[in-house]
């Protein structure tokens, strides 16, 4: 009997485990192997160079600058996106004036907002990057034209100013992502039973108290998930940097991120081995981030 059951389990597990090993684990192993070679990305064979790539990486200011930009993204992007997402979702679902027959309601036109916020999610990232590249155009871009229309004679070259360029990238990423979190948090909020709101409103709580004492703790799990998702996006940022920024990656490396530098080294400058070693470094950073997030954001779960 036992033998039969094991065979049953194995027969079910074998295929997915094999597929996982071949298509997920094995490429990782290969990547780690290739990161220790001088592979140009154009040859069928490569020579083993040990840790030379990693030593070079440790001394490469561009790599550290890129990594630093990813870290900035990692902190700033989730913070802004989640705050905005929470705010919008709250206003759409809970934050409105009290109306008849409804305990809680969103602001007027909340249905429309929910759809509008989701628009950027539907667009391809390439479209977004090209679109914003045009919006940031210093001469006839929508941003400066808009500023001029309201009387500010702006000639700011958004993407060419090293002090502003990264901020512009972050703004686009927030714009792109926030709609998804509005919808995600809306779903989370609508799952909170009305009775809870009813109870606090009877106790005389205002919108702020309602948010911080009820909504926020009850959708904490969702926020946490959102943080990890955004963290993963912050570790990337490649498409926007590559398509939208000057150089790309500039001015003066102001918008370079590790995935971009990786791609540039590996595919434009025939240094695939070096690029892969950056990928491995990034893998370690991403794993660290995931572990830390999950460890420090644990909270008691409230069942409702």
């Amino acid at each position: 009997m036992r033998h039969g059951r094991n065979r049953f389990i194995v027969s079910f597990l074998a295929a997915p485990v094999a597929i996982y090993l071949i298509f997920v684990i094995w490429p990782y192993v290969q990547a780690i192997g290739l990161s220790m070679t001088d592979w140009s990305g154009l040859t069928p064979t490569q020579d083993f160079t040990g840790f030379a790539n990693y030593i070079r990486l440790a001394h490469d200011p561009v790599f550290w600058l890129s990594l630093w930009h990813n870290v900035i993204l990692l902190i700033v992007l989730p913070l802004i996106t989640l705050t905005l997402g929470l705010f919008f979702a709250f206003m759409i679902n809970v934050g409105g004036r009290k109306r008849k027959n409804q305990t809680v309601a969103g602001v007027r036109g909340s249905k429309l907002y929910q759809v509008v916020y989701f628009f950027p999610q539907v667009l391809s990232i390439t479209v977004i990057a090209v679109l914003w590249g045009a919006i940031y155009n210093p001469n006839n871009g929508a941003l400066n034209s808009g500023l001029r229309a309201i009387g500010i004679p702006s000639t700011i070259s958004w993407l060419s100013d090293p002090k502003l360029a990264l901020g512009c990238v972050i703004a686009v990423m927030v714009w792109w992502q926030v709609g998804f979190y509005v919808v995600l948090f809306s779903a989370g909020m609508s799952a909170i039973p009305d009775e809870i709101y009813e109870a606090v409103l009877l106790d005389g709580a205002n919108r702020f108290t309602t948010f911080f004492k009820i909504t926020f703790p009850l959708i904490w799990d969702t926020i946490q998930t959102g943080w990890v998702y955004l963290g993963i996006i912050a570790m990337d940022g490649f498409a926007i940097v590559q398509i939208m920024t000057n150089g790309p990656g500039g001015p003066d490396g102001a918008t370079t991120v590790v995935p971009f530098y990786l791609w540039d080294s590996a595919f434009n400058h025939g240094q695939a081995g070096y690029g892969i070693s950056m990928g491995v470094a990034m893998l370690i950073v991403t794993l660290l981030f995931a572990v830390l997030t999950l460890r420090f954001s644990r909270r008691e779960r409230i069942e409702f």
Partner: peptide, 19 residues
């Protein structure tokens, strides 16, 4: 190959094309 991460492994991986 896993036990000896070295040139031998690297020759065998990813690329695999004719040499």
């Amino acid at each position: 190959a896993l036990a000896v991460p070295g040139a031998a492994l690297l020759d065998a991986c990813a690329t695999g094309g004719g040499s």
